[in-house]
Nucleic acid binder design. Structure first.
Length: 580
RNA sequence: AGGGCGGUGGCCAAGCGGUAAGGCACAGGUCUUUGGAACCUGCAUGCGUAGGUUCGAAUCCUACCCGCCCUGCCA
């Protein structure tokens, strides 16, 4: 069941490496439909898709799914894809968002070349289309107020009734619609409606509004217009104008498809095919621009790029790679069934990528000092450390070792439980890339009882972490030389919500009450190896045994700041849980 | 006088009348200078339910049940 994966694709300006993910489900109902269209020569065998965001917020992982579907399919069938801003509502749209969206789509690894469109650039054509429908007696100017219109529309189970303005003459409608455009009527006083069927069981067909009067400044066209087309009168025609063949969208628009087709057929213009798929839902978070906007605007997070957010900007800052997001989207598949993807699926995708590609480095997040009593005072050795055991070409680097080092506080226990393989009194462990050390005793703070120093001895014969006598140690610890350590701030993230389905768990609609108060933990006294000193923002590392981290944009020459992207899988934590 | 769309293991998802792919998760095990990774093994006599057609049904038919979406001059 392999559809053609063109060997010549992606030869353009994609800077990201596009690995073929062999977990990709290479068949789904959309691809099947497209293959049928190619086989039947509908659209002359062309495949041309589009991604149509409204510039009213930032893109999130749900948009990434839509982008990967639309753009990924176009690439796989040697087709084209457009980026189109669906900007027919001046009230919510801003240039800031179009810039952010373009940045995020590029970052994801897609290049729409010169095919960047704005629905608002089609306003003049759309206006002409509207006139054409009036002339064909398929549209009329309606003076009903919003409340009246709602009443006339009927309900889910009862038919609506015709507007008293439904049978105005073509001439009157033309005059009135021209007047609407020329600003002769106040906002909201009239609309242009499609004349379809007020008794249709599909509410979208009960004479939907095509144009409303709205004196609002459009971020792109200023005050040129005081009437704006609605989504329904804009989307299909934009697809048509752009030559799109397959208009892939959310299942929520299934009910709109008859209207999408009606406008195109009535207008007698080129008619693309709309196909719908289920939107992404993720556990322990909320998706949806409105909700994300609330979190940002009410200050529950620090901006659209807060690393806890499922926005692409936030995920980028968190340390996610574009590849990992694309692979995630491929792995979860496409269908029309409601879905709730476990956040672990996303974590798997980033670990999978970073494990293969992120350089290893040592960093101690919660340090405790270890003094090696028999190590010569003042001596410093530069030890070899491999940069990535998963990558032969990653090379090695030198790391300094000395008499005083830091290790992770939780890597030592005075009274260790079963299966604790780390440092404890009398026990020998390996310091990664360095030596075997044995714990001799500990020094505690007289008042608090907290361990302040651990005294050890090392075996000089185990340089590099090997011993010739075949002696084996159970544990291997990461460490940083105290004298050479660089201080850093490390930000640890937990899920934004405490509920698996915050939107459904609430009795009412108060998903906000499930915000996790501990979603951000800041560690201020972390010690990282000196090679990290000049690491640029967004560079990613594996902190050995601790997880994947990336340099945050808050980093300054005085202070290194890291974000934990995701911890390593931790089977010790599981054992501990089992022991309790 | 409601309409539309869905229901295959814990979470996704193939399947398209020939005897339930794959991924994540989970459970064992091997290996290991990351308790990581990798590797091996296990994990639906079952496809919303009940009937029917058929040599044979997740796939076809009938009825029923459940879930989601739709009553903006948002998209």
């Amino acid at each position: 069941m392999n559809h053609q994966k063109s060997g010549s694709k992606n030869t353009k300006s994609n800077t990201n490496t596009r690995e073929n993910d062999n977990n990709t489900s290479d068949t789904n109902f959309i691809r099947q439909a497209i293959e049928e269209d190619i086989a039947s020569n509908r659209f002359d065998g062309r495949v041309h898709t589009r991604f149509p965001p409204e510039p009213s917020g930032y893109l999130h992982i749900g948009h990434a799914k839509a982008i990967c579907i639309s753009f990924g399919i176009a690439e796989d069938y040697d087709g084209l894809y457009n980026l189109r801003f669906d900007d027919s509502n001046p009230i919510t749209e801003e240039s800031e968002y179009v810039e952010a969206i373009k940045r995020d789509v590029h970052w994801l690894g897609f290049d729409w070349e010169e095919r960047e469109f704005y629905a608002s650039d089609f306003f003049e054509t759309l206006y002409e289309y509207a006139v054409k429908l009036i002339e064909k007696e398929k549209a009329y100017v309606c003076d009903l107020t919003p409340d009246e219109m709602r009443t006339y529309r009927g309900t889910l189970v009862t038919p609506g009734k015709d507007s008293p303005y439904r049978n105005r003459s073509v001439e009157e409608n033309l005059t009135l619609f021209g007047g609407m455009r020329n600003g002769e009527f106040p906002d909201g006083s009239r609309t242009l409606r499609a004349k379809i069927d007020m008794s249709s069981p599909n509410l979208n067909m009960r004479d939907p509004v095509m144009y409303r009067i709205l004196r609002a400044h459009h971020y792109r066209h200023g005050d040129n217009w005081c009437i704006y087309p609605t989504y329904d009168f804009t989307h299909g025609q934009s697809d048509s104008i752009e030559g799109v063949t397959h208009s892939l969208c959310d299942v929520q628009f299934e009910d709109h498809r008859p209207l999408y087709d009606w406008f195109l057929e009535s207008l007698e213009i080129y008619q693309p095919r709309q196909i719908e798929f289920a939107r992404l839902n993720l556990t322990y978070t909320v998706l949806g621009k409105r909700k994300l906007k609330v979190l940002v605007e009410e200050g529950h997070v620090n901006g659209w790029d807060d690393p806890r957010l499922p926005t692409l900007a936030g995920m980028r800052r968190r340390g996610y790679t574009p590849e990992s997001i694309r692979n995630f989207c491929n792995r979860i598949g496409v269908s029309k069934a409601d879905n709730l993807i476990e956040i672990g699926q996303l974590e798997y995708s980033i670990r999978d990528d970073l494990n293969r590609n992120a350089p290893r480095v040592m960093a101690v997040l919660n340090p405790v000092k270890v003094i090696i009593d028999n190590y010569p005072e003042g001596q410093v050795e530069m030890l070899d450390a491999d940069n990535n055991p998963e990558d032969e070409n990653a090379g090695t680097r030198k790391i300094p070792f000395s008499k005083e080092i830091y290790i992770e506080r939780e890597d030592f226990m005075e009274d260790p439980p079963r299966k604790f393989y780390r440092l404890a009194p009398g026990r020998e462990v390996r310091l990664k890339h360095a030596y075997y050390i044995t714990c001799e005793n500990v020094v505690k703070d007289e008042n608090t009882g907290e361990i302040v120093e651990i005294h050890c001895t090392y075996d000089p014969e185990t340089r590099g972490g090997w011993s010739d006598d075949g002696r084996r140690v159970q544990g291997t610890l990461h460490w940083v030389s105290a004298e050479h350590a660089v201080n850093a701030e490390v930000r640890l993230y937990d899920s934004l919500f405490t509920e698996r389905e915050p939107e459904n768990a609430a009795e009412g609609a108060d998903w906000m009450k499930f915000l996790n108060p501990d979603s951000l933990e800041i560690l201020n006294n972390c010690k990282v190896e000196p090679s990290l000193l000049d690491a640029p923002p967004e560079s990613r590392y594996q902190f050995l045994r601790m997880g994947y981290f990336c340099v945050d944009s808050d980093t300054t020459p005085e202070k290194l700041v890291f974000n934990r992207t995701v911890p390593l899988r931790d089977s010790w934590a599981k054992i501990q849980k089992g022991q309790k």
